[in-house]
């Protein structure tokens, strides 16, 4: 308290105000470039917003919500049933996000093996990180060629003639396999660092108590790395829920034509992009409603990612203690 009153009495000079301005710059950028999209998309949920004239905002009587959630409602506004695709996208997105658990498992497993200091551990770690720095575009080109029906290496090896990239049964697996190929590198590095931070004395104590390898892992390693686990889980689930790149690049034409292929490559972010993109390129009646629907889906994603973040963050804080 005494400190505070002292601070209040302090005389601020020019250089202090300079420091204040400089210190605020990142915050200012963040507020401008995230705050305004947030506000506009919030208004957009309830109103039809004219993208080229922001003064033209009209209450739309929850049409955006209705079109997204009520099956068949969008038929009157657009030329397709949005909610059908929405529910489909929810399932696919959840599916892709849940594969982050597989990524996490692989990361932990490989990092555990690397921690045993096998021959060439250093070289292995260097190699394992390479997929992570490859661009998703190049990675998708790569997987599209491997999974290609005519001339792809997978069909040649398996002796099959499956159209992996267009068969509704396999299409989402294509995205998942590419994710699992690319993502673990980051987790391996993080886990490796977490392992080396665990106090060796704990292992020695466990050894004196007669713990076997599994018991040591279960009671010393796992609690020791749990902050990292929660961090990776949070980042991974977030990335999974917001999947756009890989899905759009590996299965580019699946969603492009509505009413065409009953695709499985549709994530929520792709749906948002489709709605935005269509509203700027066409001038049909339902255009502003499309933006409204895109806002609704974006806010829904925001709330879901927010809740998951808070839960996992709290778990992580607890595990640190």
């Amino acid at each position: 308290m005494a400190k505070k009153t002292l601070q209040n009495k302090k005389k601020w000079r020019k250089e202090h105000y300079l420091a204040l301005i400089v210190a605020c710059l990142p915050l200012l950028g963040f507020v401008i470039f995230n705050g305004f999209p947030l506000i506009i998309s919030f208004i957009g949920m309830f109103c039809n917003v004219d993208l080229y004239d922001l003064s033209n905002i009209q209450w739309n009587n929850f049409e955006g919500f209705k079109s997204v959630f009520i099956p068949g409602h969008a038929n009157e506004l657009f030329y397709f049933d949005l909610s059908k695709y929405f529910y489909k996208a929810v399932i696919i997105t959840a599916w892709i996000a849940s594969t982050q658990l597989v990524t996490l498992g692989i990361s932990m497993f490989i990092a555990t093996l690397l921690h045993e200091k096998p021959y060439g551990a250093k070289l292995f770690q260097i190699l394992f990180f390479i997929p992570y720095i490859c661009s998703t575009v190049a990675v998708s080109l790569m997987w599209r060629w491997i999974l290609d029906m005519d001339g792809g290496i997978l069909n040649s090896i398996l002796g099959t003639n499956t159209d992996w990239l267009h068969d509704t049964k396999t299409i989402t697996w294509c995205v998942i396999i590419a994710t699992i190929w690319q993502a673990p590198g980051y987790g391996i590095v993080m886990y490796k660092a977490a392992f080396s931070n665990i106090n060796n004395a704990l292992y020695e104590a466990a050894e004196i108590d007669g713990a076997n390898a599994w018991q040591k892992f279960r009671n010393v390693t796992l609690p020791g790395i749990s902050p990292t686990t929660f961090f990776l889980l949070q980042a991974g689930v977030m990335a999974g829920l917001l999947t756009y790149d890989l899905a759009a690049l590996i299965i580019p034409d699946a969603w492009g034509s509505v009413g065409g292929v009953e695709s499985m490559g549709l994530t929520l972010m792709r749906l948002v992009h489709y709605l935005i993109n269509n509203s700027t390129t066409s001038d049909a009646n339902g255009v502003s409603y499309m933006v409204s629907c895109a806002c609704v889906i974006s806010w829904l994603l925001f709330l879901v990612t927010g809740v998951i973040s808070v839960i996992l963050f709290n778990r992580r804080e607890k595990s640190v203690k």
Binding site: F30, N34, P37, S41, L51, L242, Y244, V272, S298, T305
Partner: peptide, 20 residues
């Protein structure tokens, strides 16, 4: 506090702001 908010979901819808 503000940094802790996960804003990734607005990645695409931000287009509306920049276009405005």
């Amino acid at each position: 506090i503000i940094r802790a908010i996960p804003l990734g979901a607005f990645g695409v819808i931000s287009y509306v702001f920049y276009s405005a």
